[in-house]
Design a protein around this nucleic acid. Structure first.
Lengths: 278, 278
DNA sequence: ATGCCTTACGTTATACGTAATTATT
DNA sequence: AATAATTACGTATAACGTAAGGCAT
């Protein structure tokens, strides 16, 4: 096998025209480079240089071989580039969701420092998620039904249950054990912008309501605490230190429940272990 | 720089699926190969294998990198092939002539063992010779006039003079000091098949003559010795130990002289030194 | 005399094989 | 137990830098 290092040296030499200058660029002693070029000639069993006592130049053979060396070096660069890309990819975890629930259920999975991976999270519809999982754009997706597809593993991993959060002074607070969409429809609610699949639920059962959309979750929480506007929480988003002036009332309808199934490629099923940390 | 040897090992591994088998094919101990693959991973800063205690397989990264490695290895093979071709070329000397005279004038040049080169010799017309010299098909050509072309060197190197060789008993032998084409035209002559430019001379001045063409020069010489048929020789083809029963009569016409000029590419002018050996 | 390449030589680092170790089937 | 990988360790080879030598400008 021809040593690719020597081909690289040849290219550098062709650009400086002298062993001395090349050796400086290559952080190598000049005798070493001289021997390296002799070795290349020996390996190829071909004279590549015209030599005089204090001058060395590429001969016709050398020029021909040089162009091949450049091609190979270009391929080497492509390989290195690919290796870099693959490393980035293997260090990142792309997760797709139909709704944000799993982020609260599996907090360590979604914290880059803990999983030692760069995380990207995207909320999309099921069909899109599945397509992109198969195309390796996602490593892991969460959807709301069981889906058996060749080459994919699918496991049920959680159920999310919707609650309405109202001030203790609110007229709805009397339903504190249970409530239905019908009971609360027609009011105005604070609502996070990114609730994915829950949008469909609300569109279906809360046609007469008004929603004040809020992008920032911290701001939403703050507004909720200092206003009397009802908002929504779920079993996984409820914090232990919830505001004392509010109560969370479970919604009894079947559509107030969302099951979550996690899917990934069979050969990467090991990723699912990450879920078991939580 | 990535060591191309390691890429080759990777390819062999991909074909056997085991380090042990690969190491045998590569005439290498198995621990060495194990370390080599670890080194490749380190150089690329990328995991290429899934390892268990007694099994190692390519992972997704490894498969991707493998295809790049194969491309590079193919380029390496092309380079080696090219080197081989160039070596063949640098060991051969292609000479073109308008007439065979220089072969006799520069005998060592045309003996492969002495010049340490494979020799090919071809007789063609000037225009063809020059074209092929420029296109590197010939390394050296001999033509009959001075020709100044950019990038070529041209030197006058010999003059060939035509003689007619007749038995001492022949009626033409009385002209032993000098003779003209006109004096000898109308006879029958022995003639070599490959006389190149001399054909034109004879076509012009010997329209009424008959020529007995002979491919093999040794046979021609033998026939000449044991017959009374006149033939042609020149100052360079005349042998010292010429047959005693014949005399060589110089032809006086201007067209009985052919000047020879040698041409080669300027950058290869060193080849001309070969002529000086003779 | 100077500059640049090659050869010589002693040293260091690298790559190898053998042997020991580990873990899976 | 057998197989096939990795790790440990001592050795031999190969690559390096310094120093010396040679030849053309």
């Amino acid at each position: 096998m021809i040593d690719s290092e020597l081909l690289f040296y040849l290219i550098v030499f062709s650009e400086t025209g002298s062993l001395l200058k090349s050796s400086e660029l290559l952080h190598l002693s000049q005798p070493s480079l001289s021997r390296a070029m002799q070795k290349l000639e020996a390996e190829l069993d071909l004279t590549l240089f015209d030599r005089s006592a204090n001058k060395i130049t590429l001969n016709e053979n050398g020029k021909e071989i040089l162009s091949y060396a450049k091609d190979i070096m270009m391929m080497m660069d492509h390989l290195k580039e690919k290796a870099k890309t693959l490393k980035e990819k293997s260090q990142s975890l792309n997760i797709g969701l139909t709704a944000p629930g799993p982020i609260y259920q599996f907090p360590t999975l979604f914290v880059p420092i803990l999983t030692n991976k760069k995380i990207s999270v995207m909320i999309e519809e099921e069909a899109e998620l599945v397509k992109k999982l198969i195309n390796n754009i996602y490593d892991l997706i969460f959807i709301n039904r069981s889906l058996k597809i060749e080459g994919l593993v699918c496991e049920k991993i959680m159920r999310e249950h919707l609650y309405v959060s109202v001030p203790t002074t609110h007229f709805l607070a009397k339903y504190h054990h249970s409530i239905s969409f019908n009971d609360i429809d027609g009011q105005t609610f604070l609502l996070s912008s990114d609730i994915g699949q829950w949008n469909e639920v609300l569109d279906k059962h809360m046609k007469r309501s008004r929603f004040l959309k809020q992008d920032d979750l911290d701001e939403l929480r703050e507004i909720a605490e200092y206003s009397t506007i009802p908002n929504f929480v779920t079993n996984v988003t409820m914090s232990k230190n919830a505001p004392k002036n509010r109560i969370n009332i479970p919604i009894a309808d079947d559509d107030a429940y969302l099951d979550f199934y996690v899917l990934c490629k069979k050969e990467r099923a090991a990723i699912l272990d990450l879920l078991k940390q939580d």
